[in-house]
Design a protein around this nucleic acid. Structure first.
Length: 289
DNA sequence: AACACCCCCTGTCGGC
DNA sequence: TGCCGACAGGGGGTGT
């Protein structure tokens, strides 16, 4: 499911219930997701108060008052919902099988947070808050795409001499942390750059960005900002925590639109689908060069 | 180092 | 209708 806009939407939805609450009890319905849960996972959470809920790349980070942080990744199909702890009342998951409710966090304030993940590509970790940056999963992460650190000079620097397609580099979390398949396709279309193009070809002879590359940072920021405003994209099951659907999928210009007319004003092209590194790429061969 | 593949797992959809 | 392959928003690991 989730790229940066979806994860951030989840964070904003969970924060009001979670931050300031104490985790009273944790039900673990299985011993692993993509990786095993940490040793004594429930015991190390129970009784702890949550100080903050942050996002780094596509990870959610809940800082606990004992100096540990609960790290959560949604993988492809993970989602959270908030239920009221109503005794005797069985809450039905919205169209989802309870068989995939893997973790339930019972809070002290009459609510429970349920993690559902059919494919189990998500993960949960416990790491000392002051050691997160050194963790193997975090230390290599690149810049946050909505930060000022992402600019054309940075991209030119990292793209120089690289033969790989620009799409592959934009998906690499070590360069930019938080982009995924949808928003990379959308950003490249907005910047009118072909996803097939060698990244190095977007760097000028002097090492600076070409005119095309200069458009890319803003295209990335614009598409992410617009998606955030829409509450993310709902392809199958991404919902905001209050149950409403994100609606940015209605604003896709290329993603999952193979055969449709290119929406670029004045362009008469047709959206094409190709496979790069085993994943679908959607783009307009006419206006993305 | 950089790049191409492979895997993890379940659900859904289109074609036959 | 049922079966079967392809594919899905992610990331980590391996081999060349």
């Amino acid at each position: 499911m989730p790229e940066l806009p979806e994860v951030e939407t989840v964070r904003r939805g969970l924060a009001p219930a979670l931050v300031g609450a104490t985790i009273a009890r944790v039900d673990l319905r299985r011993h692993d997701l993509r990786v095993p849960f940490p040793q004594r996972f429930a015991a190390r959470l129970e009784g702890r108060r949550v100080l903050d809920l942050r996002r780094r790349a596509k990870y959610l980070v809940a800082d606990l008052e004992d100096g540990q942080s609960l790290i959560m990744h949604l993988g492809m199909s993970g989602s959270f919902r908030i239920d009221d702890e109503t005794p005797g009342h069985f809450h039905r998951a919205r169209g989802k099988s309870a068989a995939h409710d893997h973790v339930v966090f019972h809070l002290d304030q009459g609510k429970r947070i349920v993690y559902n993940d059919p494919r189990r590509f998500g993960c949960m970790l416990l790491i000392a808050t002051n050691e997160i940056d050194e963790d193997i999963r975090f230390r290599g992460l690149g810049v946050e795409p909505l930060s000022e650190a992402l600019d054309a000079a940075l991209l030119a620097n990292r793209f120089r001499e690289r033969a790989a397609p620009v799409k592959a580099l934009l998906l690499d979390q070590r360069l930019i942390a938080g982009l995924g398949n949808i928003y990379v396709c959308e950003a490249l279309h907005r910047a009118r750059i072909s996803p097939l193009r060698a990244a190095g070809s977007l760097v000028a002879a002097r090492g600076g960005p070409t005119a095309a590359l200069a458009r890319l940072p803003q295209a990335i920021k614009e598409v992410l900002t617009a998606a955030l405003k829409a509450g993310g994209s709902s392809l199958r099951d991404h919902r905001q925590i209050d149950g409403s659907l994100g609606y940015f999928q209605h604003s896709f210009r290329v993603y999952d639109r193979e055969g449709a007319a290119c929406p670029t004003p004045g362009c008469r092209g047709t959206i094409a689908r190709v496979v790069q590194s085993g994943r679908s790429t959607f783009y307009c061969p006419a206006c993305q060069k």
